[in-house]
């Protein structure tokens, strides 16, 4: 009998979420944070490669890029920037609530983050539809309408625009999937002040996607603003 009691006691010392190969919850959290950051390093270089392509073509065709950028309506892009920044705030507050063990608040802020993420994708869809109506989609056998002087490099600009914003939107969709997962885990009671690393790591991913947009918004929407005034 005493053996059973001793085993029971030993189990109480360990958090059920502590994997056997880690010495402590702190060591486990540190390892998972580092793992997520190493993944984000590859993501930074992945988007970095696409941004480098943008830079090379832009310095080859600066005027065409400015004119093509001026064809993109700023307001939806600016609203989307605000939506994403707001979602980053609610994500940070979700992690904060997880740290303090307020389960209801964690779920509330994750849901708000997801709604904002979905709103972003909705506005992005509206923008893509506008581009379709204006004839600014290169390829797919669609008619590409643009000033004859810049038509070829403008197609390059819009190819880069769709690749960058498309990859970003794909990351948003994956982010919504991760948030759904986190919502279920929080509801099930897996998340606690001793084990909130999953929420924190999901947050790192979400903030990273926000950072990508922080660069995409000026580089794609704002480089041709003064063109119409000249």
């Amino acid at each position: 009998m005493s053996n059973v009691a001793a085993v029971g006691q030993a189990e109480h010392h360990h958090n059920p979420n502590l994997a056997h190969h880690f010495e402590s919850m702190e060591a486990q959290k540190e390892a998972s944070l580092l793992g997520m950051w190493l993944f984000l390093v590859t993501e930074i270089l992945f988007f970095g490669g696409a941004l480098t392509a943008y830079m090379v073509y832009r310095q080859w065709y600066p005027d065409a890029f400015a004119h093509a950028s001026a064809e993109i309506a700023i307001l939806p892009g600016a609203i989307n920037t605000a939506v994403l920044i707001f979602s980053s705030l609610t994500m940070a507050l979700a992690v904060h609530a997880a740290q303090t063990g307020e389960r209801g608040k964690v779920m509330f802020f994750i849901v708000i983050t997801m709604i904002l993420g979905a709103a972003f994708l909705g506005i992005k869809g509206y923008e893509y539809h506008e581009k379709y109506l204006e004839g600014h989609i290169p390829g797919f056998g669609l008619e590409f309408r643009f000033d004859e002087e810049y038509i070829r490099p403008a197609q390059i600009f819009f190819s880069i625009y769709f690749v960058l914003t498309g990859l970003h939107a794909l990351h948003m969709i994956i982010g919504l999937g991760i948030m759904t997962w986190m919502l279920i885990w929080t509801k099930k009671g897996v998340i606690s002040p001793d084990y909130y690393a999953p929420i924190e790591i999901a947050g790192l991913y979400w903030h990273f996607v926000d950072i990508v947009w922080i660069f995409l918004f000026p580089l794609l929407y704002l480089i041709g603003r003064h063109v119409h005034h000249v």
């Binding site: 980053s88 903030h207 922080i214 580089l219 704002l222």
Partner: peptide, 17 residues
């Protein structure tokens, strides 16, 4: 433009992340 974007990204990395 890039200075503002880098500043914003740095704030997100340091505090939100």
């Amino acid at each position: 433009m890039l200075a503002i974007a880098v500043t914003k990204a740095t704030l997100v990395v340091l505090f939100f992340m």
